[in-house]
């Protein structure tokens, strides 16, 4: 029962990250590694602000905004400077390592005894073992509702069509660069916010907390996709939450078997491999996206 509760609570927080990754990975068909830098960025910003007496909800929103800025950097490297998306993500991620260290001033910021969102909820009378569940539940629901609304607006449709078919989108007057920038912002904003929330839940922010997070997010997405196929956007986001909870559950079970926590990343890697290798999952164009340029003969001609 304990395991179920803690997995669900943590799964909810981690699903915010996975949903962020999903926006670039599945909608734009881009594997954006900025994630591993924007996650600790959010943690660093939130923890540092909280330690300095800023209310936790403002600190969490600040993480969201910082992630959006990180997203803009990767997006501009990719769209304007034409650097391949994989590399532009790595560039931003690497640069962020130093920036995160600067923000925190050291490798680790402790939040024990500080006022976090979870403490705030507890002060409203929620039992302490339920506070993460409540915070995670509220934030995740809000995120899904907002994204559902946003992706059915004119701009939302334009982002989706950009991911699907860049040349058709341009032919319809869509500024595809701008759409990618918006998607990167949403994606990394959510990831940084997840970083901030998870730091509050863990009680510390750590400079290396980003390592392996993209694998965790992808695993959650893919687990959701393997179990539930062909869904509309909002339902798909919900399956990512389920995937994320299941992932946490599997992790806890593995830990129950007395596996050294150090070996968990191997487990994550294997789990993602198994999930991706499952014939039910299709990778988006092998990670590459169609160039918006009209291609050589063959694309538009016989």
């Amino acid at each position: 029962m304990d395991i179920l509760l803690s997995s669900t609570s943590q799964g909810l927080l981690w699903s915010i990250m996975a949903i962020g990754v999903y926006l670039n990975f599945r909608i734009l068909n881009i594997t954006d590694l900025t994630a591993e830098g924007s996650f600790p960025l959010g943690a660093a910003i939130t923890a540092t602000l909280i330690v300095n007496g800023i209310p936790p909800w403002i600190a969490t929103l600040a993480a969201l905004v910082s992630g959006m800025l990180a997203g803009v950097i990767s997006a501009v490297l990719h769209t304007k400077l034409k650097i391949p998306s994989l590399i532009s993500g790595i560039i931003t991620m690497t640069g962020l390592y130093s920036i995160n260290l600067r923000i925190m001033g050291k490798a680790n910021v402790n939040l024990l005894g500080e006022s976090t969102l979870m403490r705030t909820v507890e002060s409203l009378g929620i039992k302490s073992n339920l506070s993460t569940l409540v915070v995670g539940g509220i934030v995740t629901s809000l995120v899904i509702l907002v994204l559902k609304a946003f992706y059915s607006t004119e701009t939302g449709l334009a982002i989706r069509s950009t991911g699907d078919n860049p040349s058709m989108s341009e032919a319809n007057g869509i500024n595809t660069d701008k759409m990618e920038i918006i998607s990167y912002m949403l994606c990394n904003g959510l990831i940084a916010m997840a970083g901030g929330l998870i730091a509050q839940d863990n009680g510390f922010a750590d400079i290396s907390s980003g390592i392996g997070t993209i694998v965790i997010a992808l695993a959650s997405i893919v687990i959701g996709e393997v179990i539930f196929r062909h869904l509309t956007f909002a339902k798909r986001l919900m399956t990512i939450v389920i995937g994320s909870v299941l992932y946490r559950l599997m992790l806890s079970l593995v830990l129950e078997l007395n596996v050294d926590p150090q070996d968990l990343k191997v487990f994550s890697a294997i789990l993602l491999t198994v999930a991706l290798a499952s014939p039910l999952v299709k990778l988006p164009n092998k990670g590459k996206r169609k160039t918006p340029q009209v291609k050589k003969k063959g694309a538009t001609t016989i």
Partner: peptide, 26 residues
């Protein structure tokens, strides 16, 4: 056409050709 968009969504994208796309319902 954008294959993962529905018929009406594709048409809505075309409906806005050359116009500004805002945050109204798609």
């Amino acid at each position: 056409t954008a294959s993962r968009l529905t018929i009406e969504e594709n048409m809505a994208v075309a409906w806005k050709r050359g116009k500004k796309r805002g945050f109204g319902i798609g």
